[in-house]
Amino acid sequence: MALIDWLGDLVPRLHRAFIEGSRWKLYLQGLGTTLEMTVIALIFGVLLGLIVAVVRTAHDQQRPGRRNPLLGFFNALCNLYTTVIRGTPMMVQLLIWSFVIFKTSRNKVLVGIIGLGINSGAYVAEIIRGGLMSVDAGQSEAGRSLGLNYFDTMRFIVIPQAFKNILPSLGNEFITLFKDTSLVQAIGAAELTYYAFTIGGRTFDYMPPLIGIALMYLVVVIIFTWLQSKLERRLRQSDRR
C-alpha cells in the first residue's frame, strides 16, 4: 500500500519539479550552460596543456650540455603549476578563484570556466606529454635529420601522430570535466546542478530534480562515449589506409 501511495504521489511531485511554471526550461538552460562551460574550459585546458607539455618535453629533450636557462625557468613554472593543481582539491581551487582572486566578479560562470580550465590544463598536459612520448623517437630524428627545426618537427610530424593516442584520454577528460562542472554550483554559477538545487529548495522536494539531473548527466555521458568510440574506430581505419 505504501508503494502505491508513493507512486500516486510521484506524478504531482514530478509535475511540480519539471512542468509547473515551465521549470523544464530552467533545466535546459542549466544544461546549456553546463555544456558551454565544459567545452570552453576544455579548449582552454587543451591550449594550456599543450603549452605545458611542449615546454616540458622540449626541456627534457635538450641536448646535454646545452641547456637553455629560459626554458629551464618555464619548465620550473610548468612543474609548479601541475604540482599545485593536481595536489589540491578542485573544490578548494574553485572557492579560491571565486572568493579570493575574483571576489568582486559577478560573472560566476566565467570564474567557473577559468577554474575548470586551469584545473583541466594540468591533467591535459600530462595526457599530451604521454602522447608525444608515445611517438617513435625515429620520427623526430627523421624530421631533425632533414634540417627541420624542433617546432616544425613537433607541428608537422610528432603532434599529428600523437593526436591519435591522445584522443581517448582527452575524451575521458571531457567527461570528467563535464561532471565536475556541477561543483561550480558552490560558487553560484547558474548551471544544471544549481537550478536543480534551487528548484528543490523552492518546492521543498529535492528528490525529483536531483534524480532528474543525474539522468541528464548520464545521458550526455552515454551519448558522448558513443560518439567517441565511433570517432576512434574511424581513426583506426585510417591507419590501415
Partner: peptide, 21 residues
C-alpha cells in the same frame, strides 16, 4: 645545427617515413 643537417641527408634502418603524410 639545423642548417648543417640540411646539407647532410640521413637514411635510417627503419625508414622513419612520416605515416601521417
Amino acid at each position: 645545427i639545423d642548417k648543417i643537417r640540411q646539407q647532410m641527408g640521413m637514411v635510417f634502418q627503419h625508414f622513419n617515413l612520416f605515416p601521417n603524410m
